[in-house]
Design a protein around this nucleic acid. Structure first.
Lengths: 244, 244
DNA sequence: ACACGGCAAATGTGATCACAAAGATCGGAC
DNA sequence: GTCCGATCTTTGTGATCACATTTGCCGTGT
């Protein structure tokens, strides 16, 4: 890891440094600041964050605890490189938990929220048309987590966040691939919204489960996973400048 | 919290102190050393563990990250007191994740393992007959996690462990209630084993889902939850000496 | 090319300290 | 009795340090 880190700032100056560090690192994981396999040393992260090592150390340990990062027996912390099996596992868990969140949200979400999320879907599709994968991924997240928060199920939300963090770097690497799918194949968010408007939570949950399963099947064939020989050129693994 | 802590020792002297602390605290959560609502101060835990504050601090932060403990905005760490809604949430997540683990395990588990787990079921029932709730809870855990480990799904296992940790103290408090249920109502482990022997993973998963849902319905009516008026005498909330 | 050994640098961990903030206690007023 | 303010104690956080372990680099041999 020889590239200068540009870890995002966040607007939370009144929180303890350790919490700020944690949140900034979470965001960095979702936004491609790190690549799969990167080694995160406490001192280097602390320097990048502009703190002493303690907050960085705590934040890294917290992220390892929730499996957003991998910790080796030596204590070294790495950005996860997912094997094919690990990616399947994450997806299988998502396919159970995220529909559950939708079912719970369906009993609580109101029309105003659904309208707001309709606008997010439009922005999601616009980002796709404009060729802005970073915005595309961010709108996908904004849509789904907008719904999951309606579930008012804090532990479930935290678990889903951990799943997204774990596969965040891989998704970032695959962002052009993901965005290159035809719109009707890429997501079923309109279908979900339509179902939710009819009060059909189970149907919306099923649409999401299908979306996750199909995205998994698509990426399984499209991505180079850890531990597999290079039968094709490696997908682009380096960061480009963030478009946002 | 005025009672002297007796945190379990573990057999892992070659691990870093922080990892030992973490594991010991996890075990303590499952075994009723703490009660819901207990405040865990870094210094007091460190003293009970016989370490400096650092390993205790890290362990407590890790446990808070995975929601085994609750952290207040001040940084104070508490043993969770589950509201009725929180207990329902934990159970709903369990009802999704644990059957998934069974389905995955069903494709891999062999007859030797099933035989070993058959013995655990017998010990589970013997503990019930002997009126030893601590062993009863431990055998329940041994049986189910024996299966979940067969799934070879590390993140799923970690998530299930976090769920069990979160509701560990409440279950400990309810151990006599749980053990007092008639055997055929208490669990469906024999049914699960029978299905797994036939290679019917989906059926075993469904038996477990039913077990979780019924146990939830039973406990919802039997337990005093946080934030609810005392319409009945509070259940015993203090530790008795561990029988093991 | 690879493997091994030696050495220096980097690293994670535990210990300790200072300090601001949170929490507990006490006394007085109503 | 309750409530409030003052004071003291405890607490969590961040900083820093020492040290054992790990990692990386270089040179040598095959």
């Amino acid at each position: 890891m020889t590239i200068t880190l540009r870890i995002p700032d966040i607007d939370a100056d009144d929180l303890p440094l350790e919490e700020q560090a944690y949140r900034r690192l979470r965001q960095a994981l979702m936004e491609g600041i790190f690549s799969p396999g990167d080694k995160l040393s406490i001192r280097r992260i602390a320097e990048a964050l502009g703190t002493s090592p303690m907050p960085a150390r705590t934040a890294l340990r917290r992220l390892a605890t929730e499996q957003a990062l991998d910790a080796l027996p030596s204590g070294t912390v790495l950005v996860p490189r997912l094997t094919r099996a690990a990616f399947r596992e994450v997806s299988a868990i998502r396919a159970e938990l995220e529909p559950l969140a939708i079912r719970l949200a369906a009993t609580r979400v109101d029309a105003r929220k659904l309208d707001a999320l309709t606008a997010v879907v439009a922005e999601h599709d616009a980002a796709r048309a404009a060729g802005r994968p970073e915005v595309y991924l961010q709108k996908d997240r904004e849509f789904l987590f907008g719904l999951y928060r309606e579930a008012d199920a804090p532990m479930l939300l935290s678990m889903i966040e951990a799943l997204w963090l774990r596969r965040g770097p891989l998704f970032w690497d695959a962002r052009w691939i993901l965005m290159g799918r035809p719109p009707q194949a890429a997501h079923r968010h309109e279908l979900m919204l339509a179902a939710l408007r009819r009060g059909a939570g189970e149907e919306a949950a099923q649409e999401l489960k299908t979306e996750i399963e199909r995205m998994t099947a698509f990426l399984i064939d499209a991505v180079q996973f850890e531990g597999e020989a290079s039968a094709a050129p490696r997908p682009i693994r380096r960061r480009q400048s963030a478009a946002r």
